[in-house]
Each structure stands twice: as structure tokens, then as C-alpha cells.
């Protein structure tokens, strides 16, 4: 636990020192403007919740993609990984803490989007189901962290996988129905969408802003958490494998 907090603190210090993740945070308001503008131009005020939920999730996803690609390789590049390995703290704990810190930072997207809607478009966002919103955001942050752990492991295990790091934004936004619900996707793609926790998160967040009663909340929250937990488990296993492999191959200090 102490190590976890230490890792979170370290990551926040790095963010401040590097002005890191500024891009992801700057991107949010622009997307909010674009989506809200498109909806307004089409005269579809009923789609405002879609325009508001999407930038929030996109910010979170972009952040966790970025951190998962860097958290291991950056430490490895500057020779810190090998020193961390020689401490009593498990490496997975460090990675988890650092990713969690960035994910929590990502919730700043909620504020940004709200401000753009309010100031830029005079849209008053009313939360009809605050409990659902809070639950969905918390579950999403945790699931995002778990998923980032898998990606972090994969990026280290298969160096070539980092080619995908930048590719994994729009395909996932499309597939997970972050903006446009997955019912618009071809039927054969939908089962795949349901394996991405973001598809459940997006539906839940949109429902929390609609006046209609939200259905099946617990089941859908569980889906988010379960998929996140699965990510955490697989991620931990991959990271352990990675560490064993690099200790064995002797490539630990290398990039």
C-alpha cells in the first residue's frame, strides 16, 4: 500500500515536472466543441448527451494508452527498471499505481467538457441519475487502469506492439460506441464491442444524463468491473512473465 501511494505520488510529480499528458488534456475541449457543434448544426439537441460523454471517455482512453506505452519502457530506458526490480516492492504494484494516477487525472475531462458545454454552447448538463454517473465513472477509472496494465505488459513483451499504441484510439472509439452507440455497427461486430469495457461505460454514462430510468445498472456496472479485473489479472501475469524473461535474457536494462 505504501509503495502504491509512493508510485501514485511519483507519477503525479512526473506529470507536473514534464507538463506531461498536456496533449490529451488539451484535446478534450476541442472534441467537445466539435461534437456539440455538429449536434447543434444538425438541430439535434436530443443527442447532446452523446456529444458530452464521448470527449470524457476519449480523454481517459488516450491517457491510459499513453501511460501504458511509457510506464515500463521509460523506466527501462533510463536504467530505473533494474533498480526497481531489486526492491522488495512488486513491479506490478508500481505500474498499477502510476497508471491509476494518470487515470484519475483523466477525470479532469469531465470538468473540461462541462465547461465547454456551459460556456461555449450554453448547454446546461443535468445529471438525472447522479448515483449511476458516480458509479460508472469510478468503475470506468478502475477498469481503465486494469486494461492499461495489459497494454503495458503487451508493449514490453512485444516491442513491435508499440506500433499499435497510436493506432488504438479511433478503432476502439468506433468499436466501443464511445460516441455512436454500437447498435449502429454491423451485427457481427457487436459481440466484440461488448468485450471492451468502454462500450458498457459509454451506455451507462449516457443513461445517467437521460431523464428515463436507467435499466440494469448493477449488471452493467459489474460488466465494467469484471472486464477491468480481467485486465488487471492478465496484466499482472504478463508483467511477471516479462520480468522473468528479461532477468533471464539479460535485456533488462536495455530499451
Amino acid at each position: 500500500m505504501r509503495a502504491l501511494i509512493g508510485a501514485i505520488r511519483l507519477q503525479l510529480q512526473i506529470v507536473v515536472a514534464d507538463r506531461g499528458y498536456l496533449n490529451e488534456i488539451l484535446t478534450n475541449p476541442f472534441f467537445a466543441v466539435i461534437f456539440l457543434g455538429v449536434v447543434r448544426a444538425a438541430g439535434r439537441r436530443d443527442l447532446t448527451t452523446f456529444a458530452i460523454v464521448a470527449p470524457v471517455l476519449m480523454t481517459l482512453w488516450a491517457l491510459s494508452l499513453e501511460i501504458s506505452g511509457n510506464v515500463v519502457s521509460a523506466d527501462r530506458g533510463v536504467g530505473i527498471l533494474e533498480l526497481v526490480v531489486a526492491t522488495p516492492t512488486r513491479f506490478q504494484t508500481v505500474v498499477f499505481g502510476r497508471v491509476l494516477a494518470v487515470t484519475l487525472l483523466g477525470t479532469v475531462g469531465v470538468v473540461e467538457t462541462w465547461l465547454v458545454a456551459r460556456i461555449g454552447f450554453g448547454v446546461e448538463v443535468s445529471v438525472h441519475h447522479p448515483g449511476v454517473l458516480a458509479g460508472a465513472l469510478a468503475a470506468t477509472a478502475l477498469a481503465m487502469t486494469g486494461t492499461a496494465l495489459v497494454m503495458a505488459g503487451a508493449f514490453v513483451l512485444a516491442g513491435g506492439a508499440r506500433t499499435f499504441q497510436n493506432t488504438m484510439n479511433y478503432p476502439i472509439y468506433l468499436l466501443a460506441g464511445v460516441l455512436v452507440p454500437i447498435s449502429y455497427l454491423p451485427g457481427w461486430l457487436r459481440p466484440m464491442s461488448r468485450l471492451i469495457f468502454l462500450s458498457w461505460s459509454a451506455d451507462l454514462l449516457r443513461d445517467s444524463l437521460q431523464p428515463e430510468p436507467a435499466q440494469d445498472v448493477l449488471r452493467r456496472l459489474s460488466a465494467v468491473l469484471l472486464l477491468g479485473a480481467g485486465g488487471f489479472l492478465i496484466g499482472s501475469i504478463i508483467l511477471r512473465l516479462v520480468l522473468h524473461r528479461v532477468r533471464h535474457l539479460g535485456t533488462i536494462g536495455q530499451e
Binding site: G6, A17, I80, T89, G253
Partner: peptide
């Protein structure tokens, strides 16, 4: 190698205190 260059000495050391 082995240090976070953009962080202060104290920040670096606090991290290692946590890891230990």
C-alpha cells in the same frame, strides 16, 4: 542512469523510500 532527471533529489528519494 537510474534517476528521474526532471524530479528533485528529494522526490526521487521519497519514491525509493516508498518502494522500500
Amino acid at each position: 542512469r537510474g534517476l528521474y532527471n526532471r524530479l528533485t533529489a528529494r522526490q526521487n528519494l521519497r519514491y525509493w523510500a516508498a518502494l522500500h
